[in-house]
């Protein structure tokens, strides 16, 4: 199963390398720097959401290194 996941991962990675043929220049990053394009990973909201879902669902993690555990009810 891990092999399958790896295969998917490399597929998307190679896809992204293809996209890199037309690199985005430093002066073209106005949209990417805008508030609405920021990923919310690492924000207070995401740590709250992650904590709530972690304590109510079996699946967890997947977007970075997990933080500490808890004895959640």
């Amino acid at each position: 199963m891990l092999a399958t996941i790896m295969r998917y991962f490399w597929f998307f990675f190679c896809l992204s390398l293809l996209a890199a043929c037309q690199p985005v220049k430093p002066w073209q990053r106005g949209s990417l720097a805008s508030e609405q394009m920021q990923l919310y990973q690492g924000s207070l909201q995401s740590s709250l959401d992650d904590h709530v879902y972690f304590s109510k669902e079996a699946a967890s993690g997947g977007y970075g290194v997990a933080a500490g555990g808890c004895g959640c009810n």
Binding site: I5, M6, F9, F12, F13, S16, L17, A19, A20, Q22, P23, V24, Q28, R29, G30, S31, L32, M37, L39, G61, G62, Y63, G64, V65
Partner: peptide, 19 residues
Amino acid sequence: HLGVTQLLSPQSFIQANLG
């Protein structure tokens, strides 16, 4: 954790993560 983020255009990007 292993992650790759790739800019696709000045208006889009994609990120893949393995954990």
